[in-house]
Each structure stands twice: as C-alpha cells, then as structure tokens.
C-alpha cells in the first residue's frame, strides 16, 4: 500500500521547499525617476534594507536623485532622518524640493561614533520611513548591524559613502556607483538583490537648470 503521489501544489506548500523566485520578492519605494525604477527590483529603493550610494565626488547630483522620493514620503506623513550630513542642509532648498520640513529629523553628532549609533537607533525604531546617512569608515560589522536594524524597523536606509568603499564587501541589498553626466547621472547598479546588475542614465532637470 503506497501513499498517493502528492500534487505539485502540495509539494510547493511544504515549508522546507524553497523557490528561487521567493528571493526576488522585494518591497520597494519608487525613487521618482522612471528610468531608474524600471531597473530596480520592486521598482525603487528597497524597504527594510540598505542601499549604498557611491558618488564619484560630492555635488554631482546625488541629492537630486533622492529628493523626489523624500518629498513624496514627507508629504504622505512619513518621517525622514538625515544623519551626519557633510554640510548643513539648506532649509529653503529642501522646501523648494517639496519636502515638509517638520517631518525631517536632522542629527549632527559631535563624533563619528555618535552618528553610527544614531543611524542604528533610528533604523531599528522604525518610526522614520527613511534614513539618509553619511557614515565615515564602516566595517563589515557595522554594515551588518545596520542591515539587521533596517530589517527590524522596516526602514529604508540610504548610505552615502566614499567611492573607494565600493570595492569592499557589503551586505547591502543595493549598491550604486554614481558618475556625473551632462545634465544628469550615470548609475552603475553593481549589486542588486533580486535583480541583475546593470547601468542606467538618469536626467536630473533641476541640476541641468542650475548647471
């Protein structure tokens, strides 16, 4: 007497059966740049995960890349934290970009350690929808902690890092190299969980108008 062979759907329902496509299920927030969103799994910045941005130098439009998303998030009542930015964020410019300033938390600690601690706390708390952080040197341990904290708090974390750190290992879900192009940016998506590495050019009209 043999048991009847299980159907395919029964087999797939077993908890010990893993499917490759499960990993591709990424929750994401649209970045507001259609060309970029098309190439990112889930269609934007991954929620509850780390995204690392490596601009080749400062001031090539890396903020213009994220501002539309921040603006939409704050307008919808979400909160955004900026931890240890390299300069003072200029309130009128942020308001011009459509950001609701009262939903913005600016953390400027005295020490680098304070910044790392604050980043982790905010990521873990989950009461901020997004965290933009400019950490200095980051080891694998700190990155792993950030990643776990972002998962716990379901927070979208964007880390702006120096280009040479791109060669190091990182648990981040998404890693982007940013290079200046006339009127925009070239974005090398060189690590992308649930998608394929690729490159895309994004036009940044605000930047083009000022250039």
């Amino acid at each position: 007497m043999t048991a009847p062979a299980p159907s395919l759907s029964e087999v797939l329902a077993r908890p010990d059966v893993w499917r490759g496509s499960d990993f591709a299920r990424v929750t994401a927030e649209p970045s507001g740049h259609a060309e970029l969103d098309r190439r990112l799994p889930g269609g934007g910045w991954p929620v509850g995960a780390l995204t690392e941005l490596f601009p080749e130098t400062q001031g090539i439009g890396e903020m213009q890349l994220v501002l539309p998303w921040i603006a939409r998030l704050t307008q919808a009542g979400g909160r955004v934290a900026m931890v240890d930015p390299p300069h003072l964020p200029f309130a009128p410019a942020l308001a011009q970009a459509g950001i609701v300033l009262s939903r913005l938390l600016l953390v400027r600690p005295q020490s680098e350690d304070g910044g790392l601690w604050a980043t982790e706390q905010i990521l873990r708390a989950g009461s901020c929808g997004a965290v933009l952080a400019w950490p200095g040197r980051l080891g694998a341990v700190e990155l792993k902690r950030f990643q776990l904290a972002a998962e716990t708090g379901k927070t979208t974390a964007l880390l702006f890092r120096e280009p040479r750190a791109a060669a190091e290992f990182s648990p981040a879900a998404l890693r982007l190299k940013l290079t200046a192009r006339p009127g925009g940016l070239r974005i090398d998506i060189f690590k992308c969980r649930g998608g394929t590495p690729t490159a895309v050019e994004v036009l940044l009209p605000a930047l083009a108008a000022n250039g």
Partner: peptide, 30 residues
C-alpha cells in the same frame, strides 16, 4: 494603523537627545 507611531517617535527623539545632546538632534524651519 498609525497609533503608537507618535509614541515610538518621541521615545526615539528622547533617546537621541539624551545621548547626543539637544543641539545635535533638531529639525529645520524657514
């Protein structure tokens, strides 16, 4: 669905202010 959110938020701000000081944890205005 957002209940408890403000509570968690003020606790987070408290924690940051207690460790980093009130001048390091701010918001911006015009």
């Amino acid at each position: 669905a957002t209940r408890g959110d403000d509570e968690a938020w003020s606790q987070l701000v408290e924690k940051l202010v207690a460790r980093l000081g009130a001048e390091a944890v701010t918001s911006l205005g015009l």
